[in-house]
Simulated assay, not measured.
Amino acid sequence: MSFKLNSAIIGTLVLALAFSFDCSAQTEVEKFTARNSVYLEIGGNAGQYAFNYGGLIYQKRAFKVIGSVGFSLWAEPIEGPTIWNPAIPLEVSTLFGAKKHHLEFGVGITPFLQAGVNSSWESGNLVQSKGASHLGAILPIRVGYRYQKPEGGFFFRVGYTPFFAMPNKTREDWAFQSVFAGLGLGVSF
C-alpha cells in the first residue's frame, strides 16, 4: 500500500514538473499586478485543510517571493464533545515562471494546539486529559506547480509537501513524514 501511494505521489509530481518545464520557455516576463490571493488548501502545510491569505513580497523578472498565513481547526476524535484544535500555517514560497505557469518551492512552520488524549480502559475510547493541551509544530517543505495569471483571477497549486514534526510533550524526537501532498484552489487579486 505504501509503495503504491509513494508511486502515485511521485508520478503526479513528475507530471506537474514536466508540465511546468514545458511552459518555462515563456520568453516575455509579465509583472504580477495581482499581489494578493485567498485560497483553500487541502492537505499541504496545514496537514488537513486551511484557509489562507498570500501576498507578493518581491518580484524580479521570472522570480517571485510570496508569503502566506492561514487558519485551520483540527478535530480531536475523543469521547464527549469534539475538541477543535487551532493551527496557523505560515509559509514563504518562491515562484519561477515568466507568465502564468510557475515552479514553486517553499518552507514554513505550522504551530498548533493539541488536546491531551488518553485511552479509557473501561470504554476503550479516547478521552481528554484535563489541562493536558500542549503546543506543537510541523515544518513543511514544498515542491510543486502553481498556475497563477499575473493580472489575477483563478489560481491553483499542487505540491509535494513532506514535513518534520518538532519534538513536544508527547514526542521526544523529530519525526519526518515523507508522504504528503497539497492542493490549493483560490483567487488572486
Rank of each mutant, 00 (worst) to 15 (best):
42 I>T: 00
132 A>N: 09
78 I>E: 07
21 F>Y: 15
125 N>E: 12
58 Y>R: 07
50 A>T: 01
161 T>Y: 12
103 L>Q: 04
112 F>M: 14
108 G>V: 00
163 F>T: 06
55 G>F: 11
129 S>W: 01
5 L>C: 03
37 S>G: 04
1 M>S: 13
31 K>E: 14
116 G>E: 10
147 Y>L: 09
63 F>P: 11
165 A>H: 08
2 S>M: 13
82 T>M: 15
156 F>C: 09
21 F>H: 05
54 G>T: 03
48 Q>Y: 08
1 M>V: 14
96 F>T: 01
73 L>W: 10
164 F>W: 07
185 L>N: 03
68 S>K: 03
67 G>Q: 09
51 F>I: 08
3 F>M: 11
154 F>W: 05
16 A>N: 11
164 F>V: 09
137 A>T: 01
109 I>V: 08
134 H>Q: 12
126 L>V: 04
140 P>Q: 02
164 F>P: 06
122 E>V: 07
87 A>Y: 11
36 N>P: 00
156 F>I: 01
118 N>H: 04
23 C>P: 02
15 L>Y: 01
173 D>E: 15
87 A>S: 07
172 E>H: 15
50 A>G: 06
69 V>M: 10
65 V>S: 11
15 L>V: 06
176 F>I: 10
114 Q>S: 12
168 N>I: 08
162 P>L: 02
161 T>I: 07
94 T>W: 02
142 R>L: 14
23 C>Q: 15
83 I>F: 12
174 W>L: 07
148 Q>G: 04
25 A>H: 11
67 G>R: 09
55 G>H: 08
170 T>F: 09
159 G>L: 10
185 L>H: 02
91 E>T: 06
101 H>P: 00
20 S>Y: 07
129 S>M: 10
155 F>N: 00
81 P>K: 14
64 K>G: 04
78 I>S: 13
81 P>W: 11
181 A>I: 05
86 P>W: 13
148 Q>M: 14
90 L>S: 04
131 G>V: 13
84 W>N: 11
165 A>W: 06
159 G>F: 06
6 N>T: 07
93 S>C: 10
54 G>P: 02
31 K>S: 13
22 D>T: 03
124 G>N: 05
4 K>A: 14
129 S>D: 14
45 N>I: 07
178 S>Y: 09
48 Q>C: 14
44 G>H: 11
162 P>R: 06
24 S>L: 13
101 H>V: 02
100 K>N: 12
80 G>P: 05
37 S>T: 02
133 S>V: 02
72 S>M: 12
120 S>N: 15
114 Q>E: 11
38 V>F: 12
63 F>G: 08
49 Y>P: 03
79 E>S: 13
28 E>M: 12
73 L>I: 03
39 Y>D: 12
189 F>Q: 07
128 Q>H: 00
139 L>M: 10
91 E>P: 01
66 I>C: 08
